[in-house]
Design a protein around this nucleic acid. Structure first.
Length: 724
DNA sequence: ATGGACAATGTTTTT
DNA sequence: CATTGTCCAT
């Protein structure tokens, strides 16, 4: 952000734009969040708009919170009543309020990706389909796409037999969700759009209320979200959207950056404002970014510029394999912290796939250096966390069969698949869900169900039934934390999960962490707690407090910035990913992804690619990413093997701890360079020796040059001069 | 009903 | 290779 508290003329134009539709096309680092918050502040304090009449939506909690805190800084407490929330959260909230107009109840639960997949699997099985032929993940993706295009099962586009199958699964999946009183992520948009579409009074109520609608990251909205926004803005038509088509990286999730063009078409009176001045990066980094993105066809070229000056060149390092790649990143970070006074928190290492983080984590661990890993999945996907959440969800909504199936025999209490099936059959007879039947059974010792179950099964069911009934009754009187403690206690979960091993210990620690999270919802209730958990984004888990380098995927990096950025794994098949190489649209998205990564960097950018990579457990050669060829040579300084002369053997970076020892036992060569020595190189300038070792009749010196960073030079070739 | 052993099978990104 | 599912012995 710019140090002066003033807006440039384009920003000002955006902030003070008049009524009607406004489209702000904001390049990376151009002060997009700033414009949004200033706009809200302007509406409230200068235009006299009541906060109650403003709706501002973001994609993540983090973005919403950040805007909120900035607004509080600008306006103090006078933002009371403002709706500033993530997309999914606001729709969940509205739908709970309006549940009577919808085919589900107000206490619905939100299914995560795992739950959704189980439900699809269940549907496929029920329809007697072959899981091999009809892969659940593929079918699920198709259903999700249909929902994002606002297609209900009846409107599902059927062109061949496969589509027909998908349609049948979709229908059953939809029915199962409703029977479970559960929504998936797409439903939050789909049903909300349905509600506004079908129910005019409700639509008008909200559309009248929201005099101003503001949207962040507009390029990532899908058709459903777009339709929704149009409805919400349909009365006043004051819709202010901010986005950057070059940063559209969620195409597979339904978003369609053509929405930006659609917007201009749907709202012909749109004022379009371009923000091109960048307040984040050096000009070199921007030039690299533009060189990469300019290769994408059909885009409005943007000239990104900055007043920050040229800055240092971007460093390209070719590592021998992905282990060395990780070590290089960690070593360079350690060096920069030591020699250039960078804070450890100033660094980020970005990669294409989550699997790539492992190698990096190991490298950090080997250096004994702390790091932060972005990724909610890592926590909420854990078995013990899913267990406890299943219990809580079941108490909130006994209709939830996915949670029931998980909780009913965890820890094992003698209710296996047979008994569970019997319970389901009995439930079907009286047309209630198994969970509801369980709650009923607790107070009905005369029920014919008992007779239908075997003696041992009946005892087990009875015990669980009383527990569940007890919890559901206590629910409203207890805070989420108290309820959780009660459940943990009643199920003796501690002794189940913590078997005394380190792993068991960790698992219990995780439960305690969840407990801590629950404690923050003392007075908001179970519904709010569960909803928060269902809708956390990866970025939300990023802790600002710890001063350590951040490891994250390129996707998770969007919207963030770091003084020093490493992008690793710049290989064909990784970035661009192999699954994207045959589709030009997807290839363009890979390029945008790289662009997003590059533009996160404020001061320095390191691009790293290994020549070999571990895949399927074997080390195999990999090509360097095609994107690297698009970067002009004069913006890059190269270490490791020089890419202009691929055949030449040069010093390869190899951190000491992986050095094969005693290779030079007979060496007579004495090292001349010592760590800490200052040296001068004719072209690279002044530097400091970090390390030196004798290897194959030559002395290999690691020098950190002030201008260009870490280099590994052979003493016999490099004309190094030792300075006093 | 439970838990372990083995085979198969599959690898992007995420609200 | 690393996870997930299936089969089998207890």
């Amino acid at each position: 952000m710019d140090p002066h508290n003033s807006l440039n003329s384009q920003q000002q134009q955006a902030v003070m734009a008049g009524l009607g539709p406004v489209l702000v096309l904001a390049g990376p680092g151009s002060g997009k969040t700033r414009v949004l918050t200033q706009r809200i502040a302007y509406l409230i304090s200068s235009m006299g708009v009541r906060p109650y009449n403003i709706l501002a939506v973001t994609f993540t909690n983090k973005a919403a919170r950040e805007m909120e805190s900035r607004l509080t800084g600008l306006l103090g407490g006078s933002t009371q009543g403002l709706t500033l929330v993530p997309f999914h959260a606001i729709y969940a909230r509205i739908m709970r309020r309006e549940a009577e107009h919808l085919p589900f109840k107000a206490d619905f639960v939100i299914y995560d990706a795992d739950d959704q997949l189980s439900l699809v699997k269940q549907a496929i099985k029920e329809l007697n389909l072959d899981e091999k032929r009809y892969r659940p993940t593929v079918i699920h993706a198709q259903i999700s796409n249909a929902k994002n295009d606002l297609r209900l099962p009846d409107d599902y586009l059927v062109q061949d037999y496969r589509d027909e199958i998908t349609q049948r699964v979709y229908r059953l999946y939809r029915d199962r969700l409703l029977a479970n009183n559960a929504l998936d992520f797409d439903d939050l948009l789909l049903w909300m759009a349905y509600l506004l579409e079908e129910n005019r009074p409700i639509r008008e109520r909200y559309a009248r209320r929201y005099e101003h609608v503001l949207v962040d990251e507009f390029q990532d909205t899908n058709l459903a979200q777009y339709a929704l926004l149009k409805h919400l803005a349909s009365f006043h038509e004051n819709i202010f959207v901010v986005g950057d088509t070059d940063q559209s990286i969620y195409r597979w999730r339904g978003p369609d950056y053509h929405n930006v063009q659609r917007f201009e078409k749907d709202f012909p009176a749109t004022q379009v404002i371009l923000l091109e001045q960048n307040y984040r990066s050096t000009q070199t980094i921007l030039d690299v970014a533009m060189a990469v993105i300019d290769r994408n066809p059909y885009r409005t070229p943007k000239r990104l510029f900055t007043e920050r000056g040229q800055g240092q060149k971007v460093t390209l390092y070719e590592a021998s394999d992905d282990r060395v790649e990780a070590a290089y990143a960690v070593d360079t970070i350690a060096t920069l912290v030591k020699l250039e006074d960078y804070q450890p928190g100033a660094f980020a290492v970005m990669y294409r796939t989550n699997a790539q983080s492992r190698m990096l984590e190991e490298a950090f661990l080997a250096h004994n250096l702390p790091y932060k890993l972005v990724g909610a999945q890592r926590f909420y996907g854990r078995r013990e966390i899913k267990d406890v959440i299943a219990y809580l969800r079941l108490v909130q909504n006994p209709q939830d069969e996915i949670s029931l199936a998980r909780a009913i025999n965890t820890p094992s209490r003698g209710i296996g698949s047979k008994t569970y099936l019997a319970l389901r059959t009995q439930a079907q007879k009286t047309r209630v869900s198994p969970g509801e039947l369980l709650v009923q059974l607790a107070n009905d010792s005369q029920s014919p169900v008992w007779g239908a179950l075997g003696g041992r099964a009946a005892a087990a069911i009875s015990a669980f039934s009383s527990l569940l009934a007890k919890w559901t009754q206590a629910r409203d009187g207890l805070s989420p934390l108290m309820l959780m403690d009660q459940i943990l206690d009643d199920t003796d979960y501690h002794s189940y999960i913590d078997d005394g091993t380190d792993e068991g210990n960790d698992r219990w620690e995780n439960v305690m962490e969840l407990r801590r999270l629950a404690s923050e919802f003392q007075d908001q209730g179970l519904t709010a707690f569960l909803e928060q958990i269902a809708l956390v984004s990866d970025q939300d888990t990023l802790e600002a407090s710890a001063n350590a380098p951040t490891l994250l995927t390129l996707h998770a990096a969007k919207g963030l910035e770091f003084p020093v950025v490493f992008i690793v794994g710049l290989n064909e098949g990784i970035l661009p990913h192999s699954r994207s190489t045959d589709d030009p649209e997807e290839m363009m998205e890979e390029r945008r992804l790289f662009y997003v990564g590059i533009t996160r960097a404020k001061d320095r950018l390191f691009l790293v690619c290994p020549q070999q990579r571990n895949a399927y457990g074997y080390l195999g050669p990999v090509e360097e990413s095609r994107f690297l060829a698009d970067i002009p040579d004069e913006l890059i300084s190269t270490t490791g093997r020089l890419r202009s002369s691929p055949g030449r053997a040069t010093a390869t970076y190899r951190p000491e701890r992986w050095q094969v020892p005693a290779q030079n036992a007979a060496a007579v060569l004495q090292p001349r360079y010592q760590p800490g020595m200052r040296v001068q190189h004719p072209t690279w300038g002044e530097g400091m020796v970090l390390n030196s070792r004798v290897d194959s009749d030559d002395e290999i010196v690691d020098v950190f040059f002030k201008e260009i960073g870490l280099k590994h030079v052979a003493a016999s070739l490099a004309r190094l001069e030792i300075k006093p």
